[in-house]
């Protein structure tokens, strides 16, 4: 495919946020989406870590795309991602120790997060650094939005707080189940259903 037929950096960025949202549209990288969304703070930290790794991997892959060999490209992608994840993991353990303890194994699990390897394959290995960086920023913004949407619902209903601040009245009966694993499944399923309600509504209007 020639580079001119691929989306421009601007389009890449916009696409990542909503039209090709990695979580709600492409259903990629769902482990952290469900696992670290019990509190908004951990969701934000996780999104930031993913953004750094995605940006780093996309830029590096885009820089070396001319020398990639087809059958070895996945290995190179994985190596790059694992390198960046180790760096982020160590940096976080050094400067944000409590958060790195809370995220636990989910930080190293970014290595096998499908979003990053998918973006390397779809965008960075075909386009220049500008487009790759814009794509990484757009996708991580979309990822952050999705994580924050789920996390705020879970934290608000489960603990009555947002980012640790009390939001709900003190009499709020905390829905502990929302913080527990089932709450993650329920919240994600219901949010997706909500999105498709909106979409169905729009399509219906267009037909009428």
């Amino acid at each position: 495919m020639s580079e001119s037929s691929l989306p421009t950096p601007g389009e890449r960025f916009v696409n990542g946020v909503l039209p090709e949202n990695p979580v709600f549209r492409q259903l990629l990288g769902l482990c952290p989406v469900l696992a670290v969304t019990a509190t908004l703070a951990s969701a934000l930290t996780m999104s930031f870590a993913v953004a750094v790794v995605l940006l780093g991997a996309n830029v590096v892959v885009s820089l070396i795309r001319g020398w990639l060999r087809p059958h070895l490209r996945i290995v190179v992608f994985t190596l790059t991602i694992a390198g960046f994840v180790t760096l982020v993991d160590k940096t976080m353990a050094a400067f944000l120790y409590p958060m790195s303890k809370e995220l636990g194994p989910y930080l190293p699990l970014i290595i096998v997060n499908c979003i990053i390897i998918c973006r390397c394959e779809v965008c960075a290995s075909k386009q220049g650094v500008g487009a790759a960086a814009a794509d990484a920023l757009g996708q991580s913004l979309g990822f952050t939005l999705a994580l924050c949407a789920i996390a705020s619902v879970r934290e608000l209903l489960g603990a009555g707080t947002l980012l640790g601040f009390q939001v709900m009245p003190a009499a709020w009966p905390e829905w502990v189940v929302m913080i527990l694993p089932p709450g993650a499944f329920f919240t994600f399923g219901l949010l997706m259903a909500l999105l498709s309600v909106i979409q169905l509504h729009r399509e219906h209007r267009r037909v009428v």
Partner: peptide, 16 residues
């Protein structure tokens, strides 16, 4: 609106 992934997620929640 639940057809597809949403219902899978809700069922997954019940399993969990």
């Amino acid at each position: 609106p639940f057809v597809g992934i949403p219902v899978v997620m809700v069922v997954g929640g019940i399993l969990a």
